[in-house]
């Protein structure tokens, strides 16, 4: 087994771990961590698998570079919205995180 394949497997482990976290953690910041790490897992799979048995492959590396930049802007965006939301509601979770979300949303008082 080459190092490339091994890191692809690590990537799979990261994805599974992060997916589990995404299901059980409701804290919004922890979820931001979760999709950052999940993204890293995907990047590892992308580069690791493509380079297994082949020479260094610049294409997935370039794609992952794009992916990293997109990921950081997604993180920044999520944090911005989260912070504004936190300032208004003092909540770090979205209430009732399952398919009754739509209902709980409507029950919030409004002007």
């Amino acid at each position: 087994m080459s190092a490339n394949l091994w890191f692809a497997l690590v990537g799979a482990g990261l994805i599974a771990l992060a997916a589990f976290t995404f299901f059980v953690q409701t804290h919004l910041l922890r979820r931001i961590f979760a999709f950052n790490i999940m993204g890293s897992g995907v990047f590892l799979i992308m580069v690791g698998m493509a380079q297994h048995l082949r020479q260094t492959d610049p294409v997935p590396q370039a794609l992952v570079l794009t992916g990293i930049v997109v990921a950081v802007s997604a993180t920044a965006l999520a944090l911005l919205i989260f912070r504004r939301f936190y300032a208004l509601s003092a909540a770090v979770t979205l209430t009732q995180d399952n398919d009754t979300l739509g209902d709980s949303y409507e029950q919030e008082p409004r002007q």
């Binding site: 995404f22 999709f35 997604a74 965006l77 999520a78 504004r84 939301f85 509601s89 949303y105 409004r110």
Partner: peptide, 18 residues
Amino acid sequence: ANRQTLAAGLRYLYMALL
């Protein structure tokens, strides 16, 4: 940017990123 739309936007963003 009020509370309802921010919550809705966050939920949308998280699911879309996933």
